[in-house]
Simulated scan of single mutants.
Amino acid sequence: MTNTIILEVTNDNEFLGLLEGDEVLVSTAEQPQSNGKDLAVFEAAGEHFVSTFTRFGNQIMLLGERIQVVREHQVKIVGKVIKRSFEGKEKAAAW
């Protein structure tokens, strides 16, 4: 598969159902919709994180356990999460 990257989750995010050690397959060719449902990978200050989001003008509202509002120029949307795998026995079955 081209234009994809695999990222390992380093912090639990129970709101999104992701735990440390899980992996996400990210399509850098697909842009997630800002509908609050698509999982997106963002980059800010050299760090990657996964969140759902919505837009208001030039602001992005990151939806999670804690809602955070950032200006569009403060983050880069890397791509859309297209698959998840889970740590342990389920990981092999998920891919």
Rank of each mutant, 00 (worst) to 15 (best):
E23K: 14
T10I: 14
I6Y: 06
S27R: 08
F49P: 02
V24A: 12
T54E: 06
V26E: 09
T54S: 11
Q68H: 05
E72V: 09
F42R: 03
G17D: 13
E90C: 01
R71G: 13
A94M: 11
T2N: 10
L18K: 10
F86K: 12
G17L: 02
I60F: 04
V81K: 09
T2K: 12
T54V: 11
N11R: 14
N35S: 05
T52I: 09
T54D: 00
Q74G: 00
K89F: 11
P32S: 12
N35R: 10
R55S: 05
K80S: 07
I77V: 15
G79M: 01
V69G: 01
S34E: 15
L39Q: 12
S51N: 09
E23A: 04
E87P: 01
I82R: 05
S51V: 00
L16V: 03
V41N: 11
L39R: 13
H48I: 02
T52R: 13
D22W: 10
F53D: 00
T4P: 02
Q74R: 12
I60C: 02
V75D: 05
Q31D: 11
K89E: 14
V70I: 15
V69M: 14
F53A: 02
H48G: 00
K37H: 11
G21D: 07
E43P: 00
I77Y: 02
F15K: 14
N58R: 08
A45W: 09
N11I: 04
L7M: 08
V24L: 05
D22E: 10
G64R: 03
V81I: 00
A44F: 03
V26P: 10
L19F: 15
K80D: 05
V70H: 06
F15R: 13
A29D: 15
G46Y: 03
V41P: 07
F42N: 03
